[in-house]
Design a protein around this nucleic acid. Structure first.
Lengths: 130, 130
DNA sequence: GTAAAGTATAGAGTAAGCTCTAAGGTCAAG
DNA sequence: CTTGACCTTAGAGCTTACTCTATACTTTAC
């Protein structure tokens, strides 16, 4: 597929897609005789994965290392496994911290709700969203 | 305490501390007669909290809103509770996504380790870090 | 075959979040 | 009463991650 379709299907700006490619996040982007990019179907998933990792706070460089290790059926399996373990540790740390924050938010929410009720205020949209 | 001590105890650059203050992340920073900042003891915790939230991907603006709601024993309890619920939902979404990523990383790590062993490579630092 | 739409590259511009520099005021030690 | 370590502000500079502009080539539609 051409860049316009990938842009449409991923919601990622075409300039950003070219930037990701330049940064090594998208590999195997072949070109037609007209020099236009021709993305494979799986590019959609790859871009989605990049977006997700980005939202989780990984930098472009980290994402590149991670994704490249993931698709490496190459020699450096031990190195790849090491990288995985490293990222996993980082992910686990984030999960732990987020749990702590959630706990804090939860108790604060309850406290504020109680306060609001005490002041006789409506809680229309307030009570336990989702 | 003065800025040098807060810098030392939090590990956050003094320019950054002033920047955080300007952005409304640090409140009640009083001044002595010499116009020097005089931070209260709890500023250390407050800065630590800012750092943690930052690492979790919250923007300066989001952190300001969140922390100000947390310390508000003011009128807008209902609004504060709503804010808490909102952030909590975002935090929970992140946790879910990170769990998924961890799962992926875990299976990839195992695959790569198996590959490495199959190739007769050493796994010195590799096997399940932490 | 020409206009409109799509693609290419190179490089400028933007926003967030720092990080540092310059120029100057404060204060304790010697 | 000066030296040196601290503090102040204003504003410049830097990095990351886009986002856009300019210029030019290709394709599609009429």
């Amino acid at each position: 597929m051409r860049i316009a379709e990938l842009e449409k299907r991923t919601g990622v700006n075409r300039h950003t897609l070219r930037y990701y490619e330049k940064e090594g996040l998208l590999l195997e982007v072949h070109r037609g005789g007209n020099n236009y990019r021709d993305y494979p179907e799986k590019a959609v998933d790859r871009v989605a994965m990049v977006c997700q990792l980005k939202d989780l706070g990984f930098s472009i460089r980290e994402i590149r290392d991670l994704l490249n290790a993931l698709r490496s059926d190459r020699i450096d399996c031990a190195e790849g496994a090491y990288l995985m373990a490293e990222k996993k540790a980082a992910v686990e740390k984030k999960i732990r911290e987020l749990r702590q924050i959630r706990k804090l938010l939860d108790s604060e929410q309850k406290r504020l709700e109680a306060s609001a009720v005490a002041h006789g205020l409506s809680l229309k949209r307030t009570a336990t969203t989702r």
